[in-house]
C-alpha cells in the first residue's frame, strides 16, 4: 500500500495512538479501559505503521523484537502479584501508596499488574501479526 497520504498520516498517528493507549491503560481503574485494550490499541498503532511503511521499516523503527515485551510484561504482572506475599499477605493483595500522584492518581500494585498485561498483549499481538505477515 504505497500511499503518501497514509504514510504521512501514520507518522502522526503513531505517537497519538500510543499516547491514547497509555491513556486508556491509566484510566482503566475508574473508567472504561484497561491494560488489555491499551495493549491492543498500541499494537494497532504499529500495525498501521507497517501498512504505510512496510514491515521492515516498522521493525527498524521498533528496534527490538516485539516478542521481548512478552516476558517483561509477564514478569511485571507476576512480581506485582507475588509482592504482597513478602509482607506476609496473600497473593494478589492490593498494595497502595497513601498519597495520590498528580495526573495519574493513586498508584498501587494493580497498576503494575495492568502495565504487565499491556506489555504482554502488545507483544503477543505484534509477534503474531508480524510472524504471519512475514510467512505468507
Amino acid at each position: 500500500m504505497n500511499s503518501i497520504i497514509l504514510r504521512t498520516a501514520s507518522n502522526y498517528l503513531l505517537p497519538m495512538l500510543i499516547l491514547f493507549s497509555v491513556f486508556v491503560l491509566l484510566r482503566g481503574h475508574y473508567e472504561p479501559g484497561g491494560g488489555f485494550v491499551g495493549g491492543l490499541v498500541a499494537a494497532i498503532a504499529f500495525v498501521l505503521h507497517s501498512f504505510a511503511h512496510g514491515l521492515k521499516e516498522t521493525r527498524r523503527f521498533l528496534r527490538i523484537h516485539p516478542g521481548v515485551f512478552i516476558p517483561i510484561g509477564l514478569l511485571l504482572s507476576l512480581i506485582s502479584a507475588v509482592l504482597p506475599m513478602i509482607g506476609g499477605q496473600s497473593l494478589m493483595t492490593g498494595l497502595w501508596f497513601n498519597e495520590p500522584v498528580p495526573v495519574i492518581g493513586l498508584i498501587g500494585s494493580a497498576l503494575f499488574f495492568e502495565i504487565g498485561v499491556y506489555f504482554v498483549v502488545f507483544g503477543v499481538t505484534l509477534t503474531m501479526l508480524f510472524t504471519i505477515t512475514e510467512s505468507v
Partner: peptide, 24 residues
C-alpha cells in the same frame, strides 16, 4: 476493597487477578 470505580476492571486486576495472570 480495591480502590477502583470500574467494576469490570477491578474484577480483572484484583478480585480475579489470578485468572488474568493465567490468561496472559
Amino acid at each position: 476493597l480495591a480502590k477502583g470505580k470500574n467494576v469490570v476492571n477491578v474484577i480483572l486486576v484484583d478480585f480475579r487477578g489470578s485468572d488474568t495472570l493465567i490468561e496472559i
